[in-house]
Amino acid sequence: MIDWIQIFSNAAQELISPTTAAYALAALGLAIHFGYTGLLNFGQAGFMALGAYGYAISILSFGFPVWGAVLVGIGASVVFALILGIPTLRLRADYLAIVTIAAAEILRLTFTTNTFADITGSASGLQGYKGGFADLNPIPTGSYGFGPFTYNAYDWWIRIVGWSLVVILALVTWLIMRSPWGRVIKGIREDEDAVRALGKNVYSYKMQSLILGGVYGTLGGMIFILPRSVVPANYQTSLTFFVYAILLLGGAATILGPVIGSVIFWVLLSFFSGFVARAVEAGWLPFMSQVQAGQLRFILVGIAIMLIVIFRPQGIFGNKKELAFVK
């Protein structure tokens, strides 16, 4: 028999999981890039990897305090955004897409290669960097919560920090997008030549947007590694595509869209995976093995991306009139 309680409880845990928060941050950054500015950043995985590695390496190799490690990660992603932006932001939109996806792969391969294994840990990645963050935890040791939401002090600490960051950055994004800065940014999305003809330095605004959204992704990357270890295989191109799926699901030019999109995405994915895995176990799907059941989720995400883009391009929260789609 299928253990429905377990499936639902696992899915419910995704509601507030740090992974959900991390993806929400990355998607919010992508909303700034893609939804508001019209920049096709396909390298969000690279920004997340910089957060993860910047944080872990600073602590493990250089013994930095937590705040120092966070600054290193942010600094690295600012530099990364500059390197990506300088050659491409003057060119057509698709060049940025190709360069960002290539640059994210460069980062991943560099983190994976054996050449720098003593710093990056190559394919097996890094661990043992959680001490500093755990020491900042004001929650006394113990187990708290109810039902599926019962966690120890460290797990609660990650969730509190992660979701506070989501709330703060969502608020910041909301504020800047209704300011004159946001007006210029949205104008660039509509037609950058028109904005240029009005005396705005479009190049500089695009760069600011690329950096800002990238830093969101970097912070997401840091939250992402706090409950697990840093593994380079996590930062493949499909990570970026998952973040896009979340963004499109919620609505590209919205503030709540990326956040709610992330929650829906992970709850549904967990529910679906849990259900299929147990259905296979129970012999309901005789043509499928456990391994194949695990692959179904990717097929599903792929199909979902296609269907959303074709049939509801504005996402769940988007206003069809406001954002039909970026050209």
Binding site: Y244, L300, I305, M306, L307, V309
Partner: peptide, 9 residues
């Protein structure tokens, strides 16, 4: 983006 979804699926 449709082609990306297609590729993944």
């Amino acid at each position: 983006i449709v082609s990306i979804g297609l590729s993944l699926a």
